[in-house]
Simulated scan of single mutants.
Amino acid sequence: MKKTKILIASAILGIATFVAIAADHIDAPAVSGGTSDITDFYAFQGANTSNLVFVANVQGLLSPEATGSASFDENTLIEFNIDTDSDNVEDLVIQATARDGKMYFFGPTAPSQTGLNSTILATTAVQGSVDITDYGQTAVIGSANGMQFFAGPRDDPFFMDFNRYGEIIGGTATSFNNPGADTFAGFNVMSVVVEVPKSMIGGTGTINTWVESKRKQ
């Protein structure tokens, strides 16, 4: 689970340079290498300053050869959680689930239940879908209800000199090189992106936001 806090500003008081990031590569033994493994979570203001963008990346360390056959797990639900009153409980969720070459989105809307278990909100009026983009093809963008959607492989954006990190942890080095070697260069992830008007999640104020992947039971 990834969690961060961001400030939603009005369109006039836009936070144009704000980016919130949480990352977690190759150190979750229960899901590492699996289709439900979350590698990164990003939340930032869109090019349209009235919108927020949420990005969940899964299935890290995909080589170009592996990316061509990679797909989203149809038994996994990706859920963006939004806490609008600072009680660390989700007040709104945006859900994404794959089916037959498409990614379906539901929300933002109040969840039917909070916590670790979720029910797909297929009956909500706020929903959309997009064809999943194939590797090496032009990005397919979907839109509905003022939102935009993307799902498909992308280059892993996270920069980390993992070998140097190991040397620092092991006590054989004391600092990172500048710029160092990008361990994740050339690898890909499967990305789910949704851009949402701020008015759909409160408009102004501070929110907590995190993402979870949940497998069908």
Rank of each mutant, 00 (worst) to 15 (best):
D87M: 02
L7C: 12
P108K: 04
A47P: 04
G171K: 04
S71K: 12
Y42G: 04
T35V: 04
N177P: 03
I82K: 02
R164P: 05
P153L: 07
F80N: 06
T4C: 09
L52H: 09
A96L: 10
M190Y: 05
S10D: 15
N88P: 02
T124M: 02
S10V: 02
R154N: 03
S213Q: 02
S143K: 05
G202K: 04
A173Q: 10
A110D: 06
F158A: 04
V211H: 02
F150E: 01
L13T: 09
R215D: 12
A96C: 13
R164I: 02
Q45I: 07
V53S: 12
D131W: 03
F158D: 11
V89H: 06
S63A: 11
A47I: 03
A185Q: 12
A181Q: 15
G170D: 11
A139G: 00
N51H: 14
N88D: 15
A30P: 00
F187Q: 15
V53M: 12
M160I: 05
G203L: 05
A70K: 08
F176N: 11
N177G: 15
E167D: 10
G136I: 11
S112D: 11
N208D: 14
T17W: 05
F150P: 00
D161M: 12
T76K: 07
S143N: 07
L121C: 07
W210H: 02
Y104F: 12
F80K: 13
Q127P: 02
T183F: 12
G166C: 10
D156P: 05
T204P: 03
E65P: 00
G33F: 00
F158G: 04
Q127N: 13
F105H: 04
S63F: 11
P179G: 14
W210S: 00
G34Q: 15
S71G: 07
I8S: 04
S213T: 15
G115Q: 11
N81T: 11
F72V: 01
N57W: 10
A22K: 13
S86T: 14
M1D: 07
S50H: 08
S10H: 08
S199H: 02
F72S: 00
